[in-house]
């Protein structure tokens, strides 16, 4: 199934409406009062935001429908709304970038943040760049060392280390 801008806009609009309603429902669930002693309570802004988000979602749906109808009336075949939103390169980038980032979060408690980041750089260069492993390791090591100097030495950030102290 092709994910076009038209379909994406419909999903966005629906998500906005549902999201806005969830925000309002959660405000009520948490007993955040809209008004308290004739003044705005802690639920005032969240509920307004929920209504506004749902309203924007509805507007996006209407606008999308209007644009699609207009394109049909004018006989435009390849309108902006029919363009495919995702391509193979982006799906690959998405999977690897997010996957590698999640790896850093998961691996940090075990091998420390610097080592996890070093491995992630090597992996990203090797997989997405198809560079030689030697080049990837050199870049990974140099970058990790520079990050160590900036954050640990210069800024004094206590970076989480591994069991072996790196």
């Amino acid at each position: 199934m092709k994910l076009t801008l038209k379909r994406g806009n419909n999903i966005l609009g629906m998500t906005g409406i549902v999201g806005g309603m969830i925000i309002i429902a959660l405000a009520l669930y948490q007993e955040l009062p809209f008004m308290k002693k004739e003044l705005p309570g802690s639920g005032f802004f969240p509920i307004l935001c929920g209504i506004a988000i749902a309203g924007c979602g509805l507007l996006i749906l209407i606008e999308n429908k209007y644009k699609a109808k207009k394109a049909l009336e004018e006989g435009v075949e390849d309108s902006e709304l029919d363009e495919d939103l995702v391509n193979k390169i982006e799906i690959r980038n998405f999977v690897y970038t997010i996957g590698i980032s999640i790896f850093v979060v998961m691996a940090t408690p075990f091998i420390g943040i610097l080592l996890s980041i070093g491995i992630s750089i090597v992996a990203m260069i090797k997989i997405l760049g198809r560079e030689s492993i030697t080049k990837a390791i050199i870049i990974g090591a140099v970058t990790t060392f520079i990050l160590f100097l900036i954050f640990s030495v210069f800024l004094g950030v206590p970076l989480p280390s591994s069991y072996i102290g790196i």
Partner: peptide, 12 residues
């Protein structure tokens, strides 16, 4: 990819 990996490391 080299540039992106360095930027991602910096972000994380």
């Amino acid at each position: 990819p080299i540039l992106n990996s360095v930027v991602l490391a910096f972000i994380l």
